[in-house]
């Protein structure tokens, strides 16, 4: 018991790192995902194909391999290009890989959200003389954003759990810190169980928060 008690602050510090990474990655992923998601719906075939390739590549390959490509692969390319900086710090490599990966999933979430808005909305907006961009911005996206909150929450949770992979490139997030403590205490059961519970507390809070947001927006939807 005292073992758990003593290692708790150290583990929580790891949890903080975990949250920081997942949150930043989802944030960048949302921006990227919106752009790629709109690209998937573009009238231009080339843009559509590029966006589809991006999504297929990042969803069709293991996240761990993507992390390796950025962390170990990119520096090699940088070196060959004669860049003065060739080392990518683990945190940045992780953030780049996770953001790119998240962008692909979020793109599909946005695409589905946009397509779930009835066709008549776009037609009504266009019939009033709005351009495609104006119709998207003022009519389609505000409605789509509300609908994508639950799947975005799921994406955030999935991403947060996947940050445990980052122990392999030496980021001292939650899982890595668990390993470190076990290496000196030889108490895998208690420590891994504690680590698991901390993850659970994090994901549970996120899903609660998402439920809350969803309910608030629902209320806003059939506003008084």
């Amino acid at each position: 018991m005292s073992l758990i008690f003593n290692s708790f602050p150290y583990l929580l510090g790891g949890a903080l790192e975990t949250i920081k990474l997942a949150f930043l990655a989802v944030l960048v992923g949302c921006v990227l995902g919106l752009v790629v998601g709109l690209g998937r719906l573009s009238g231009q075939r080339v843009i559509r194909a590029l966006a589809a390739f991006y999504v297929d590549f990042l969803r069709g390959t293991p996240l761990l391999v993507q992390v390796f490509i950025v962390y170990f692969g990119f520096p090699q390319i940088l070196e060959q290009l004669g860049s003065p900086v060739t080392r990518i710090p683990p945190f940045w490599a992780a953030l780049i890989a996770f953001s790119l990966n998240s962008g692909a999933y979020v793109a599909e979430i946005f695409r589905a959200g946009i397509q779930s808005i009835h066709r008549g909305q776009m037609e009504a907006a266009r019939s009033l003389g709005m351009t495609y961009g104006q119709a998207m911005r003022y009519v389609i996206l505000p409605q789509a954003f509300r609908r994508v909150i639950p799947p975005l929450g799921n994406e955030f949770i999935a991403l947060l759990k996947d940050t445990s992979l980052l122990s392999v490139i030496g980021i001292t997030e939650l899982t890595r810190r668990g390993q470190i403590i076990i290496a000196s205490t030889f108490r895998p059961f208690e420590i891994w169980f504690t680590v698991a519970l901390i993850y659970l507390a994090l994901t549970f809070s996120i899903s609660r928060l998402v439920n809350f947001l969803e309910r608030r927006l629902d209320v806003a939807d059939d506003k008084s």
Partner: peptide
């Protein structure tokens, strides 16, 4: 052109938000 041609739809298509 569409600014000069108004349209009313069967299903109204008001913006619900």
């Amino acid at each position: 052109v569409r600014q000069k041609v108004g349209m009313v739809f069967q299903s109204f298509n008001l913006f619900p938000h």
